[in-house]
Write a protein that binds this DNA or RNA. Structure first.
Lengths: 221, 221
DNA sequence: CCGTTTCTCAACACCGTGTTGACTCGTTCG
DNA sequence: CGAACGAGTCAACACGGTGTTGAGAAACGG
């Protein structure tokens, strides 16, 4: 069995200039162009020319402009997930001093989210734009978001079980609202237009609200 | 001076079928169509035919599809502002018992916001869609949002000055984050896709977070 | 060297937007 | 009355973007 190590995932052999290279060139062009202008101002033709091919050839590699975006999003989401998992791991083995350790764990998680999307600002903005018109983008994001909601909800419930946090509204509802807040606030911060929190303060502000919503008690009414 | 009472704001006289009627027909058609499908699935032709005119004639009344949206948005925003002002007025004359009265004031404000946009669900969704591509929509919303942020921030500062709320992060930052949360959470609730809080619980969940962020104290760290 | 697979693109079909220029039809004023 | 005006109307056009077709070249693999 003479298996060729240069065979790609799709079993394609390198031609004059490899097809996989072209695919990567399209992705790279997309990320480059989206860093400087909105998705609606980037046409399929722009992506094709940026990758040194014609528009029909673009369709050999991707079904549409949105498919390119989806592909890029997959990567960034994986990155964010990894960063968040790592943030969790760092503070997981400690059940000693509740306040400082717990606070640090939440801070790291929010920071991981913030850093990842800040590093792909253009993509983040493009994703928000595509979400309103593209079903697949919407579903991908819904899945990712649901994952984060479940993590946060589980963490909140764990704190309540330990007696570190008081009972209150369902943990899941709290998690949905807080994660939604992060999403919108960070988006506003990165997009630059409209009222927003300064980038240097945003993690601190969000953290404060998470902590008081989870640990602080609202006045009885 | 024979002033004709049928003269409109723009001093136009009614022709065969009045131009103002057509303008209203376009607006009504837009709101009707947006209640059943997204903005991207409503063309200028749809609006024109819905109002009983041809596409070029549409452009006699509005510069674009977005201009129609902007016009509708103006109305809804005025409605929301009025509802919120009224909510404020109801509880303004009371400086007696802090906790219950304050809680009720915040609840009414959030509820007003919620009710207004729920009553124009299709429009709310269309606005979010247009915001990503249209500069004017973005600016209109930024202005409205800024107004709400200033109100909330002022109210938070008032509570802090009274000693009812502890100091913390700048009131404006808190206001931006909490208003952003409301926007995103309510949007998710109305849009129906992706993780969301049940509509019957959403005001309560948001209120809880506002109260603990403003009045509750986070653990020192 | 011949067939198959990979890859490429000119030309086309389609749709949505916004514009032009001519035309109707009441109103106004000499 | 009838010319002039302005509001209102639309067929036809120009344009730009998307996605498809069909006819190839270029590189293996047998």
């Amino acid at each position: 069995m003479p298996s060729d190590p240069s065979l790609g995932v799709r079993g394609r052999r390198p031609a004059r200039t490899s097809g996989d290279d072209r695919e990567l060139a399209i992705l790279a062009t997309a990320e480059r162009l989206l860093a400087e202008r909105p998705l609606s101002a980037v046409s399929v033709d722009d992506l094709a020319r940026g990758a040194g091919i014609s528009r029909p050839t673009f369709y050999f590699y991707f079904a549409s402009k949105d498919a390119v975006l989806l592909s890029l999003l997959d990567r960034v989401v994986a990155e964010a997930d990894a960063a968040m998992t790592q943030a969790e791991a760092v503070t997981s083995g400690a059940s000693g001093r509740p306040p400082e350790v717990a606070r640090e764990a939440w801070r790291r998680a929010i920071s991981a989210y913030h850093d990842t999307f800040r590093d792909h600002r253009g993509l983040t903005l493009a994703w928000a734009e595509a979400r309103s018109t593209n079903h697949e983008v919407r579903e991908l994001w819904a899945g990712v978001f649901e994952g984060w909601v479940q993590r946060s909800a589980a963490a909140i419930e764990a704190e309540r079980a330990r007696g570190a946090a008081p009972p209150g509204v369902p943990a899941r509802d709290l998690a949905v609202a807080l994660n939604s807040m992060n999403e919108r606030v960070l988006y506003a911060t990165f997009s630059g237009d409209g009222p927003a929190v300064a980038e240097s303060d945003v993690v601190g502000v969000l953290l404060g609200i998470w902590l008081s919503a989870i640990y602080g008690s609202a006045p009885a009414g």
